[in-house]
Amino acid sequence: MSDDTTLDDHSTDESLPIQTDPATGIDHEKAQRGVRLVLDAIGEDPDRAGLTDTWQRRIPEMLETLTEGDRQAAKPTMRTFEATHRDLVVKTGIPVYSLCEHHMLPYHGTAHVAYRPDDEVVGLSKLIRYVRWQSRRLTVQEELTRDIARGLADELDAGTVLVEISATHMCEAMRGIETETTTTTREIVGEPTAAERERFTDAIARTDGETR
């Protein structure tokens, strides 16, 4: 029986959703068919007990979560408050989990964010939610760092934003050189003062020291 016949046979299974989810934009049937094809390509039996839920439910649901950054509806509401100062706001140690667009393997690490408020500030938890939302898509670390910085500048109407991400890439650790290293990227919007740059760097160093 050919691969196409196998997939076509299962595409009519009443247990499978057959439409794109309007809330997420994920076509569950295509996701299920694709995962079945990959499993078959590596010599696995998609219908064995340990894999049926994998292609029928788990992978499509995982894709919904890990691509939330592509959907504006999933973006956190950046509720702001009147700023009472113009000092740099720094938030360090934000967990980052994303997917490399080259290999679809995860990279994970820590983001550090700072901005100089103009008229408004945002709750610190929103910075964490915003980083998480931006990271949930297929991207590369350099692009993610840039998008977080520029996105926050737009969301908060902030003239100065600094973002640094340090991450380990599974496409290096699990394949290729098979070595776990750390990649660090930084993006700056605006013109922070020397004192602001130093404060940001010192805050990162303190966080790194506490986590070791």
Rank of each mutant, 00 (worst) to 15 (best):
R58F: 15
L124D: 15
R212H: 13
T84H: 08
M174E: 15
I177H: 13
W133C: 04
T193C: 02
Q32W: 02
R116H: 11
V35R: 00
K126S: 04
S166W: 03
G69A: 03
A173L: 09
E178D: 14
S125P: 14
A83D: 08
M104H: 14
D118P: 09
E155Q: 14
A83L: 13
A73G: 02
E164K: 10
V96Y: 05
T145F: 08
H102I: 04
Q32G: 12
Y107D: 07
S2Q: 13
D9C: 12
Q72C: 04
Y115I: 01
V122L: 01
L152E: 03
D208W: 01
A49P: 02
P192I: 02
L127Q: 09
E29C: 11
G123I: 07
S135P: 07
R137S: 06
G109S: 09
E61M: 09
T77P: 13
V38C: 01
V189Q: 02
M62W: 11
T67D: 07
D208F: 04
T211P: 07
E82M: 14
A205L: 04
L162E: 00
T20S: 13
R197G: 00
Y115N: 06
A203T: 05
P46R: 10
G159K: 09
P60F: 03
R132K: 11
T145G: 12
T160I: 08
T77W: 07
P60H: 00
E180P: 10
V131R: 01
A23K: 15
Q72T: 14
W133D: 00
L138N: 09
M174I: 10
R79V: 05
L37F: 03
G25A: 10
E101H: 13
H169R: 10
H112I: 03
L16H: 04
V35N: 00
H169N: 11
E180H: 05
M1W: 13
T207W: 15
D53W: 03
A83K: 09
G151S: 04
R197F: 01
M62E: 08
P117N: 04
